[in-house]
């Protein structure tokens, strides 16, 4: 839509500059310029964000180069900084969260979209969306005081079943990579449910009718026809959930144990990128230490941008297909 479509034609002056001022006076173009400025502000803020992260992490980038990402010594006193334990912690906790969150979230989405009557489905979805609004520090609070004691009580049972794997060996003090993974899975499930439900609802009814007419059971229809149709959108919801869990700070910081080492056991404490920034930022002294933490922020930023970008593409491509 052209901005000047309603300008008074008879009032149009000849000179270019004076034409501009004339048009500004009409009100339409003032509104255009003001709103355009605000839209440009978004671009400016994002550009400034990237610039600041890049600029302020220059010292460790010059000193360590790419080895920052692959070495695992984090010793602020000696001035040695390697980000691997944090990257490992972030990736492993998020993977655990997805492992538990995907079946739960997709299962609930199927129930809400395919089985529950519309009224009940809308009511339950409302409750689940409220769960998504709970602040992360509250999840952390419950993590410390409810989840950690519960996991300590469950530990013998977990060990009895899975104790033979190295992932569940060694001592368990409650705060651990496992606890962080469980808290994260609870936090991401609402996202998976609400988006997946929407893409499943967008699957055309004819698809279901066709399968049912061929004699498929309700479950076979859902699993073999509806889910494959909504596959990309569900993948998108999972990527969005992943991006959120990678950047999640408070809940993870409170239960992960905050130890910058890589252990193969999930029972052992660990550390994540967001958690180390939260814990050490205020006490970081010197350009190198602070710069290393900001570089971690840059790494986290890069990770979430990539994952979010993939998610958008996937969700967009299904909702468009479903709408047509």
């Amino acid at each position: 839509m052209a901005a000047s479509s309603t300008t008074n034609i008879s009032a149009r002056p000849s000179g270019r500059a004076s034409a501009f001022w004339q048009r500004l006076r009409s009100g339409d173009d003032i509104a255009y310029v003001i709103t355009l400025t605000c839209a440009l502000t978004i671009l400016a803020i994002t550009a400034l964000l990237v610039f600041e992260l890049f600029e302020n992490s220059a010292v460790p980038r010059d000193k360590f180069g790419w080895s920052f990402l692959v070495t695992s010594t984090w010793d602020p006193v000696a001035g040695q900084f390697g980000a691997l334990p944090f990257i490992y912690g972030t990736v492993v906790t998020s993977a655990l969260a997805l492992l538990m969150g995907i079946p739960l979230g997709v299962g609930a989405a199927i129930f809400l979209a395919e089985l529950a009557p519309t009224k009940i489905s809308n009511g339950l979805t409302f409750l689940i969306e409220l769960l998504a609004a709970v602040p992360s520090v509250i999840f952390g609070l419950l993590g410390i005081f409810v989840l950690v004691p519960a996991l300590i009580a469950l530990e013998p049972a977990i060990r009895a079943v899975l104790g033979w794997t190295p992932a569940f060996s060694g001592p368990f003090y409650g705060v651990s990579v496992l606890s962080a993974g469980v808290v994260l899975s609870v936090m991401i499930v609402p996202f998976i449910i609400s988006i997946s439900r929407e893409v499943i609802l967008a699957v055309p009814t004819e698809q279901r009718e066709g399968a049912l007419a061929l004699g498929a059971t309700k479950w076979e229809t859902t699993w073999d026809v509806v889910i494959p149709f909504a596959r990309k959108g569900i993948m998108g919801s999972i990527f969005l959930a992943l991006a959120r869990s990678l950047g999640e700070t408070m809940a993870v910081t409170m239960v992960i144990g905050n130890e910058p080492k890589i252990h193969e056991s999930l029972f052992a404490p660990g550390y994540s990128i967001a958690a180390v920034i939260a814990n050490e930022f205020t006490e970081a002294t010197g350009e190198l230490y602070l710069g290393a933490l900001i570089e971690l922020g840059l790494v986290l930023f890069g990770l979430t941008i990539i994952i979010n970008g993939l998610a958008r593409v996937l969700v967009l491509s299904t909702t468009k297909k479903g709408a047509s």
């Binding site: 978004i42 803020i45 994002t46 964000l49 600041e52 992260l53 991006a243 990678l246 950047g247 999640e248 700070t249 967001a274 920034i277 939260a278 930022f281 933490l293 900001i294 922020g297 986290l300 930023f301 979430t304 941008i305 994952i307 979010n308």
Partner: peptide, 11 residues
């Protein structure tokens, strides 16, 4: 910008 983790906005 919406997907940027809140802690990065803090930085």
């Amino acid at each position: 910008l919406n997907g940027v983790p809140s802690i990065v906005i803090g930085i």
